[in-house]
Amino acid sequence: MMEFILAKYNYWIYVIIMMIGFYAVIAKSNLIKKIIGLSIFQTSVFLLFISIGKVDGGTVPIYQGTEAVYINPLPHVLILTAIVVGVSVTAVAFALVVNIYREYGTIEENAILEMIKHDD
């Protein structure tokens, strides 16, 4: 059992990080904390993708004149794109929170829901 966990520990960590992020998204009332949770949630996926590119004994995928075992660079390249997406999501989310703060004067979701209860 222990060996099974240790042999694939990065995948376990990916799941744990993801659940931490997911918990923050669901449970936290503060909108900034929700964004932090969302970022953690997305970051865990980066770890998964980077892990799957690893090849035992592999080296950087640059041709050096001799035959060698290379790691798979494709997941890394994919994750560069996903990181850009993650940054953009965070940026848009912050912009929306600024707007929400200007509108309601608070970023606590409970307080906002209390305020808009009587709106339509």
Binding site: L38, V92, V97, N99, I100, E103, I112, I116, D119
Partner: peptide, 12 residues
């Protein structure tokens, strides 16, 4: 008034 909040929830 609710538009940014609706957008934020959609985002999450």
């Amino acid at each position: 008034r609710k538009a940014p909040l609706a957008g934020f929830r959609y985002l999450v």
